[in-house]
Amino acid sequence: MDKDTVYRKLAELGLERIEYSERAMYKLNLVDEATQATYPLILTTHTCDQGDTIVKFEEVDFGYGDAIPRSVRKAALDKLFELEQLFFSDTRRKGLEGVQSGTMAPNEQEMRKLGNEMKRMKTNTELMDEDIVPDPIQY
């Protein structure tokens, strides 16, 4: 996606560009309703040589050293899900044409193996309890 489109979409969602060169940093201030404290959520984009701009979801961070309240982490996660939908909804819609259903586990043994792996995975809530922001991008 070109950098002007990325900038416009992020601005529409309330993010303010705070730095720009090959990469741009965007800030969204999230407010803890209980304390009225403000926590800046920082999002980075990178413009490639070909001109496309990539949102670096893996580099999202709070520009704050102290513990982030759960309500603020949840608001950040909700915003990241919203961003993910905004940037990847067209790509997914196009990419699903011709996809075969049921190819993740071709047989019962593989299905049981995947089920056991998923049992050990932590939920988003468990990750947030450990002060980890879950990855919003799921394919």
Rank of each mutant, 00 (worst) to 15 (best):
K79S: 14
L83I: 05
F57I: 07
A67P: 08
L96P: 06
A24C: 10
G14N: 08
Q85H: 15
L28T: 06
A34Q: 12
Q85K: 15
E12M: 10
A76M: 05
K74T: 12
L114A: 09
L28C: 10
L83M: 12
V99N: 09
M104Y: 06
K122E: 00
V99R: 14
T123A: 09
V60Q: 04
R112Q: 04
L30V: 11
K122H: 01
K79Y: 07
S89E: 14
T44H: 10
R120H: 07
T125Q: 15
A76I: 10
R73Q: 15
A67W: 10
T38Q: 13
A76D: 06
R92Y: 06
A37N: 12
T103S: 10
E59F: 09
E97V: 00
V60H: 01
T91Q: 13
D78R: 12
Q36E: 14
G102T: 03
V60D: 02
A34S: 09
L83F: 05
P69K: 08
V60P: 05
D61N: 06
Y20I: 00
N107R: 01
Y7H: 13
T123W: 02
A11G: 08
E12V: 05
A11M: 02
E126Y: 02
P69C: 03
L13C: 11
R92G: 06
N107H: 03
A105G: 04
A75T: 05
D90A: 15
E97R: 09
D2M: 03
S101Y: 08
